[in-house]
């Protein structure tokens, strides 16, 4: 029962790390989802100056490993005169990744709204912006909420990348504790469990939420 004692000892040390992890997750999502929504509209823009840069951003954001984006923001930006503290750098990098991935979710959501809905809006004399705001968007949001929550759970785990630029989040707390005590297994399983408990709780929440949604 050494494990239990070690976990007991580690747990209070890890809690501030969990707090940083949660803050990092929320901050990245709060910046990243609106970015994703904007990119979703921008990649289908008829104007090339809007469309092409957004396509490049989306494809790079999805194609490049998150760690490279993180390093570019943390180590690359200072070379052009913009130095960000590690929490902010991690937030920016994860927000870019979130924006790139969620833009595809938003795009699919917009496309999932039947074309007849747009036709009905137009036939009623609604102008394009109102058609989007009052008819298309509310229906698209319903489609995108479950996959967005799914992405949020992945991102929550993905924040552990910020360990690489020494953000004091959950994984770095665990790693530090482990390198001091050499109890790697105990430290990492506890950290893993802390990630898992919150992830699984969120998944369970989504599942009950979507089940309720399916009822007419």
């Amino acid at each position: 029962m050494d494990f239990l004692r070690q976990w007991q000892q580690f747990f209070p040390q890890f809690l501030p790390g969990l707090w940083v992890t949660l803050k990092l997750t929320v901050a990245s999502l709060v910046l990243g989802f609106p970015l994703g929504a904007a990119l979703a509209v921008a990649v289908s823009s008829t104007r090339r100056v809007i469309r092409w840069p957004s396509i490049v951003l989306v494809e790079l954001g999805r194609g490049a490993p998150g760690l490279i984006v993180l390093y570019l923001v943390y180590y690359g930006l200072p070379q052009v005169g913009l130095t960000l503290p590690n929490f902010l750098a991690a937030t920016v990098a994860l927000a870019i990744t979130t924006g790139a991935y969620s833009s595809e979710i938003f795009r699919a959501g917009l496309l999932a709204v039947p074309v007849g809905q747009r036709e009905a809006s137009r036939a009623l004399g609604l102008k394009p912006f109102k058609e989007f705001r009052l008819v298309v968007l509310p229906q698209a949001l319903k489609f995108v909420i479950p996959p967005l929550i799914g992405f949020a759970i992945i991102l929550y785990q993905g924040t552990s990348l910020a360990f690489a630029i020494s953000t004091p989040e959950l994984l770095s707390r665990a790693y530090n504790a482990a390198s001091i005590t050499f109890q790697f297994t105990a430290a990492l399983t506890l950290a893993g469990a802390m990630y898992a408990v919150i992830s699984l709780l969120a998944i369970a929440l989504v599942r009950t939420g979507s089940r309720r949604d399916e009822r007419p």
Partner: peptide, 18 residues
């Protein structure tokens, strides 16, 4: 176009209610 469409009502095969 929106102004024109306000004067013409349309009913669709698939209803297209919101």
């Amino acid at each position: 176009l929106a102004e024109h469409r306000r004067e013409v009502g349309m009913v669709f095969q698939n209803f297209n209610l919101f």
